[in-house]
C-alpha cells in the first residue's frame, strides 16, 4: 500500500482503489474520447469545423446569452441574498428554500413552462406583444431561461459571506460618519466582491452547457438562436461524430478553464479570510 504518512486508519488502499478505478472508467475514459476523436481530424479540418459560420453563430449565442444571464443573476442574486440574510418578513424561510428550485426541478419542466409563459398569447408574452417585444424563439428567451437556471448559484455563494459579515465593521463606518450608501459601497461590497465573482463564474459555467430549459424556448434557428448543445446533438444525429467532437472540445476546454478559475477564486478567498 502506498502511504505517504503512516496512518493507523485502515481502508486506504481499498478506498483509493475504488475511487481511482471509478474515476478512470466512468470519467476519464469517456472524456478521453473527445480528445482522441478530435485528434482524428487534421488541424485544417478541425479549424474548418469550428470556424464554420453556423458553429461560430452558435458559440456567440451560447456565450453571449450566458454572459448576460449570469450578469442579471449577479445583480439580482446579491439583492435576494441581502434581503434573505438581513431582513425579516413572513415566509422568509419558505422563500429561502424556494431559491433552490432550479437545482431541484428537471430542466425539461422549466423549459416547457417558460416557453408557454412567453409565447405571444402566454401569460407574460401577451403583455409584451403590443410593445413588439418577442421572447419566445429569440435570443431574449434563451437569456430568460438561463437566468432561471443560474439564480441559485449567485444567491447561495453570496449568502454565507453576507452572513459572516461582522456587524461591528458597519457600525464602525457609521460612527465615522459614513452614510448607509457609503458604507455599502465602500465596506460591504468590496468584502462580498469575491463571492459575487465566484457566483457569476458558476452561473456562467452552468449556463453555457444548459440544454433542457433552453431548447424549447429558443426555437433553434440556425445562425440565430441555435445553442451549442443543440448543434452538437444535430451533428450526432447526422453521424458527423468528428464535427460534434470538435465543437464539444472547445466547450470542454472553456469549461475546464472556468472550473480552474472558480477553484482558484475560492482558494484565494479562503486564504484571505484565514489571515
Amino acid at each position: 500500500m502506498r502511504r505517504t504518512s503512516r496512518s493507523v486508519l485502515p481502508g486506504f488502499g481499498l478506498s483509493l482503489g475504488i475511487t481511482c478505478t471509478y474515476l478512470s472508467l466512468m470519467v476519464l475514459l469517456p472524456l478521453a474520447t473527445v480528445f482522441t476523436r478530435s485528434a482524428d481530424l487534421s488541424w485544417a479540418d478541425f479549424w474548418g469545423t469550428i470556424s464554420n459560420p453556423r458553429v461560430v453563430a452558435s458559440y456567440r449565442v451560447t456565450f453571449g446569452a450566458s454572459f448576460v444571464a449570469a450578469l442579471v443573476n449577479t445583480v439580482f442574486g446579491l439583492l435576494v441574498a441581502w434581503v434573505l440574510v438581513r431582513y425579516r418578513f413572513p415566509g422568509r424561510r419558505i422563500v429561502d428554500a424556494m431559491v433552490d428550485l432550479p437545482f431541484a426541478l428537471p430542466t425539461a419542466v422549466a423549459g416547457i413552462a417558460l416557453t408557454t409563459l412567453y409565447t405571444p398569447n402566454g401569460w407574460v408574452g401577451q403583455y409584451l406583444e403590443p410593445f413588439g417585444i418577442k421572447v419566445s424563439y429569440t435570443w431574449l428567451g434563451i437569456t430568460v431561461a438561463l437566468v432561471f437556471i443560474g439564480l441559485p448559484f449567485v444567491v447561495r455563494t453570496v449568502q454565507p459571506v453576507l452572513d459572516d459579515l461582522e456587524v461591528e465593521v458597519e457600525e464602525a463606518a457609521a460612527s465615522l460618519g459614513a452614510r448607509r450608501s457609503q458604507t455599502f459601497l465602500r465596506v460591504v461590497l468590496p468584502t462580498v466582491a469575491p463571492a459575487l465573482l465566484t457566483g457569476f463564474a458558476l452561473a456562467f459555467a452552468r449556463a453555457i452547457g444548459e440544454y433542457g430549459s433552453v431548447v424549447f424556448i429558443s426555437g433553434n434557428m440556425p445562425m440565430k438562436t441555435e445553442i451549442v448543445p443543440l448543434l452538437i446533438i444535430t451533428k450526432l444525429e447526422q453521424y458527423d461524430y468528428a464535427g460534434a467532437t470538435a465543437v464539444a472540445l472547445v466547450m470542454l476546454l472553456v469549461s475546464f478553464v472556468l472550473l480552474l478559475t472558480i477553484n482558484l477564486l475560492q482558494w484565494a478567498a479562503r486564504r484571505r479570510v484565514e489571515a
Binding site: 461582522e166 461591528e168 465593521v169 457600525e171 464602525a172 463606518a173 460612527s175 465596506v187 468584502t191 484571505r272 489571515a275
Partner: peptide, 10 residues
C-alpha cells in the same frame, strides 16, 4: 468608537 475586536476594514 473603538471595538473589542477592532472592526478594521479588512
Amino acid at each position: 468608537f473603538v471595538f473589542q475586536h477592532y472592526a478594521l476594514f479588512r
